[in-house]
Design a protein around this nucleic acid. Structure first.
Length: 269
DNA sequence: ACAGTAACCTGTTTGC
DNA sequence: TGCAAACAGGTTACTG
């Protein structure tokens, strides 16, 4: 479900409901996510939410005495619901506030809830991550440096969190189409000028997706249970066999690094 | 250091 | 129609 735009959409949606609120309790129905969920009841009880931030695809809820780090994995979502809403299957964690709760739903359980005391950016899961794609530190020069001597597919490089964070399969696929670059081209064999273009397209596609409230393919819903509207603007992702929106050539797919990669053989070189 | 693969899970779609 | 295989938005950990 979530790449950076969906996580950012979630962050913007939940922040107004959480900021300044005091947690009165937590319910962990299923502690076995990607890593064991800590005892949130005793860690969080009585603390106030001071910040709701994002780093890569991690949401960071800042409390008085530490930070709750949340990752949504492949299938996770967060909703704001009345505190007494009956849980459905895969509703693993509730954070209880006054009249409402923040509920984590995650069928595949690839998500995570971690606790960090001190600087959350120093947590082992966040330390060593690359630059934020929408920040000024991410640009063509940055990609050029990372691509030096690398024979991996440019798409794999783009999805490598040490190079740049937050770019998953959908948006890597789309950014490469917009930049006119074949996804399986060796990273070191993409010219500097085209890397400049690619960095720009990554920023553009992520920015537009955030404006539309994210991409809903089958099950992404925002904090209120509404879908995002970026799917209709996808050029190649999920369109194998359909005509390219630019030139009409049928869209092809191939596996790159175990992920389906759609591309237009005419528009991308 | 690098590149490729398996693994963690469950639900949905595809193909015979 | 029924069942099994393939596939899905992410990330880590292991292999050679």
């Amino acid at each position: 479900m979530p790449e950076l735009p969906e996580v950012e959409t979630t962050r913007r949606g939940i922040a107004p409901h959480l900021l300044g609120q005091v947690i009165r309790g937590a319910i962990v129905r299923q502690p076995r996510l990607r890593w064991p969920v800590p005892d949130l009841q005793s860690l969080l009880g009585g603390q106030r939410v001071q910040t709701v931030e994002r780093r890569a695809k991690y949401l960071l809820l800042g409390f008085t005495r530490g930070t709750l780090i949340i990752h949504l994995g492949m299938s996770g979502s967060l909703r704001i619901l009345p505190a007494d809403s009956p849980p459905r299957p895969h509703d693993h964690v509730d954070l209880l506030f006054g009249r409402h709760c923040l509920r984590l739903h995650d069928p595949r359980r690839f998500g995570a809830m971690l606790w960090a005391e001190g600087d959350p950016l120093a947590h082992p899961r966040l330390r060593g991550l690359g630059p934020e794609p929408l920040s000024a530190t991410f640009d063509g020069a940055c990609l050029h440096q990372a691509a030096r001597g690398r024979r991996v597919a440019i798409k794999s490089l783009l999805m490598d969190g040490k190079v740049v964070v937050g770019v998953g399969n959908i948006y890597a696929t789309e950014a490469l189409f917009r930049a006119g670059i074949l996804p399986n081209r060796a990273a070191a064999r993409v010219s500097r000028a085209r890397l400049d273009r690619l960095a720009g397209e990554v920023k553009a596609v992520l920015g537009q997706a955030i404006e539309r409230g994210g991409t809903t393919l089958r099950d992404f819903l925002n904090e209120s249970g509404e879908p995002g509207y970026f799917a209709q603007e996808l050029f190649v992702y999920g369109r194998a066999g359909e005509p390219c929106k630019r030139c009409g050539t049928p869209i092809l797919t191939r596996q790159i690094g175990q992920r389906a990669s759609a591309f237009c053989p005419k528009c991308q070189r």
